[in-house]
């Protein structure tokens, strides 16, 4: 472990890495079972220094937790012949299914736009437009809508003072994963900042998987769709027949 820290410290280089992150997670896997109602994740860590901490500029920490991402289509409804129909559309690449960001202060005060762009920290920076269909030149509205809808569903979370920083050395951030998760690798990214510039980053993954019957059903639905379909029918047939028999016995 110590060798690893040493190697990491060396690889970043002594000029930049006067301060670096040492981090940990309360858990590195989440199992989605039938009665899954969400999961709490604690991200904790410390700032490692070779020399005493400088007084200025102020130290900040940002932690993001991100679910598997993929392309999405965002559509906007317009009124046509009196009814509301999807018209203009914007395709976005790499939109996370879940995104939580916690920071030790308001994002626009602790993170410079340049570094946000460089490290792709905030959700806006994660999403990029790949295709525009119809009258959607105002695609910024579509990006905002994506965030708004995600937030309303509880899939996009912003905690402006979600990172508790103690003595400019220890920090912790608490995340509550919701129940409607997409399985896959969740990435935790941690950024150490001074005066808006990122001075160190760390990344860890949390394995989110369906288990038990959830896993079996989901795997089968995707790997053996025909068999899965037939089984669904069998289930319905047995239930239907059972109901009819029960009803007959009950009536007697």
């Amino acid at each position: 472990m110590r060798a690893l820290f040493f190697a990491l410290a060396l690889s970043v280089g002594p000029a930049l890495a006067e301060e670096s992150l040492v981090t940990g997670l309360s858990r590195d896997d989440v199992q989605i079972t039938a009665d899954f109602t969400g999961s709490d994740i604690l991200v904790y860590g410390a700032v490692r220094r070779n020399s005493p901490a400088p007084q200025t500029p102020p130290l900040d920490v940002i932690v993001t937790l991100e679910g598997p991402s993929g392309p999405v289509t965002v559509r906007r409804k317009e009124r046509i012949f009196g009814i509301w129909v999807n018209r203009a559309a914007v395709d976005l690449a790499e939109v996370p299914s879940y995104f939580a960001i916690a920071s030790s202060g308001a994002l626009d005060q602790i993170l410079s736009p340049d570094d946000d762009l460089k490290h792709q920290i905030s959700l806006e920076r994660r999403m990029s437009v790949t295709k525009i269909t119809g009258d959607a030149m105002d695609f910024a509205d579509f990006l905002q809508a994506t965030q708004r809808i995600g937030s309303a569903k509880g899939n996009y979370v912003t905690q402006h003072s979600g990172v508790k920083l103690a003595e400019d050395t220890l920090f912790r951030a608490d995340f509550a994963l919701p129940a409607n998760l997409t399985e896959g690798d969740f990435t935790v990214r941690m950024f150490l900042l001074r005066g808006g510039r990122v001075i160190d980053t760390k990344e860890q993954t949390i394995d989110v998987r369906k288990t038990g019957i959830e896993r079996q059903l989901s795997n089968m639905a995707h790997r053996q769709p025909l068999l899965y379909g037939i089984l669904s029918l069998l289930l319905a047939a047995v239930a239907g027949w059972g109901a009819s028999e029960m009803f007959r016995i009950w009536r007697r």
Binding site: V72, T73, W84, A145
Partner: peptide, 9 residues
């Protein structure tokens, strides 16, 4: 909500 988000894959 005028907008809707559909996940492709």
């Amino acid at each position: 909500e005028l907008y809707s988000v559909t996940r492709l894959v």
